[in-house]
Every structure is written in C-alpha cells, then in structure tokens.
Design a protein around this nucleic acid. Sequence first.
DNA 1: TCCAAATTTAGAATGATTATAAAATAAAAG
DNA 2: CTTTTATTTTATAATCATTCTAAATTTGGA
Lengths: 144, 144
Amino acid sequence: MDRTETLTQALRQKGLRLTPQRLAICRLLATSEQHPTAQMIYEQLRPQYPSLSLATVYNTLDILVNLGVVNALGSAGDDVVHYDADTDPHVNLACTVCHRVIDLPSQHVRALEEEVTATSGYRLLGARVLYYGICPDCQQQPEE
Amino acid sequence: MDRTETLTQALRQKGLRLTPQRLAICRLLATSEQHPTAQMIYEQLRPQYPSLSLATVYNTLDILVNLGVVNALGSAGDDVVHYDADTDPHVNLACTVCHRVIDLPSQHVRALEEEVTATSGYRLLGARVLYYGICPDCQQQPEE
DNA sequence: TCCAAATTTAGAATGATTATAAAATAAAAG
DNA sequence: CTTTTATTTTATAATCATTCTAAATTTGGA
Ligand SMILES: [Mn+2]
Ligand SMILES: [Mn+2]
Ligand SMILES: [Zn+2]
Ligand SMILES: [Zn+2]
C-alpha cells in the first residue's frame, strides 16, 4: 500500500468522505519531501483547486493527525507547524535559518520507537523526532 | 555542575546579565519536572516576583533556546510550546488529553543523538524527541 | 554619584489557528 | 430522477499564544 493509500484508507475506515479536496491534500502530503505547513499545502493546491479554503486544509490535517497517519512535527524556527506523512521511524532535521525540514537515515530510531511502544504504557498516536540547528548550506551562506 | 548552573553559565558566557528574573526562570526550568510553558513559568513565579512580565519569560526562554541549553519541545496537544531544560538525550512523552509531558528512560536515544551529531552536517542547537498519545491515567478516566 | 547600555514592563500588534454559520456537495431513500 | 438529510466546504470572524514597541527601571562601570 503506497503512502497516499494509507491516508485515504484511514479516512474511509472512519466513515469520512474522500472528497476531491481531501484527496488532493492526502496526495500532496504523501508525495511531498517537504514536510509542508498548512499554508504551503494551500498555496500548492490553489492553482488546481481555486476554491480551496485554508480552513479545509487545517481541518483535514487535524483529522489525519488524530488518526495517527500524519505526524505534527512542530515549528522549524518559523513558528508554523510542519507535517510529515511518513510515519515510519526516522529522524527529521530542521534548519532554523532556512526553515527546511529533511529526513535523516538512522540505524537507531526504529529500535527507539519499539522501545517506547513496548515500555511507555501510552496509547501512541504520533512521533516527533526532530533535531534543529543550522544546515550545511546556511552555515556558509550569509543568509537565505 | 548542576542544571541551574548550566543555564546561568550560558547567559554569563554571552555577556548577558543574570537578573533576578532570569535567575528565577532558570531555576524553575532547571528544577521542574513539568516541561513548563511560558504561561506556567509566569504563573509559578508571579507570587515571588509580582512585577514579572510575561514578555520577560518569553524573552528569556528565547535566549536559552538559542543558546542551546533549553529545548523547545512544541505542543502537547494544547497548542502551547513546552520547554525542557534537560538537554541530555532522552525521550519525552506527551499526553494529548491531560497535556502533561514526562521523561522516559531510553537505551537507544543517546546513540541516536550521537549518530545525528556525527552524520547530519548540521550545527545542532536542540532536540525534540517526543512521542504523543494517551497516558495510562487518561486511558481510564472518562476525562481530565 | 553619574552615565550609558541592558533589561524589564505594560500594553498593543501580529498572525497562525480555530470557530461559526451559510452554501455546496454527496450519499440515501423513494 | 427527485427529495431528503448529513457531511463537507467555504468565507469570514474570533481567539489567543507569541512578538513587538516604547517608556521606565535597573545594572555595572567610570
Ligand atoms: Mn520526515
Ligand atoms: Mn524531558
Ligand atoms: Zn538552512
Ligand atoms: Zn493524560
């Protein structure tokens, strides 16, 4: 099952309708490498869906996060929430200068997540494994 | 060096003044198990420092985060930023019902952080290793 | 003591997010 | 294919955490 399917299945299983807007948001989330914010999703979809409302983007994100199929990573120094549709255990790296979030391959994070699942006693809904700092590009550039 | 010292030293090393307000905020952060928010710090210190301003709390937190001695964990389902003065590698667990954040001992997270430091190429400033879900208490209680 | 820089404070402003209510849409029923 | 009804979307207003501003205060040094 590809990543878009994971999101749309989750909606269907809750009896929620898979509207064109929701499908577009799911697709964008599933295929983006960007860890987008609500605003970024809104702007990227507006050309295709001129009537799309920012409220719909926020509503859909909220649903997906509460279903546990999208992670809310929080701010990357820009005071805006970034989202991640990749819920496989992995490390996120945020640059507080250019506000980009990238993935980092990691040997240890899967074991970490298993440990948390096994020992915490929590009914886990999502993960936020993110380190923040200054990316190699921004360490050189005067500014971006 | 205890944790309060770590924070106050960081301020001094940048040539910043260790005012009574800043000292109180550092002490509270260093000794709290709570992962407090700016508002929580403000309310807990107001009895002792009636003139304390919320802006000072935010300013001081911002300084400490930018010095890398306090981590900004983000929201625990309450849409407010929680802070953590414990920068040793560890796992945080947030309950999205009661909005409490606790620490979880972990075997793997230290190795994870070393891996990120070694391989990312980022100048790292802070960590946000947090899993969110429903805590054992809230899984039982009707609500809190 | 006096001065200049740093800091705090109160309050206003910002802006991301959430709430509201009306319009549009989609499934269900007939 | 209509009618009905619940769901969803949309535009807009409201909320409220956080940041900004400028004046008052405090600090450490001359
Ligand atoms: Mn990611
Ligand atoms: Mn912690
Ligand atoms: Zn960067
Ligand atoms: Zn709880």
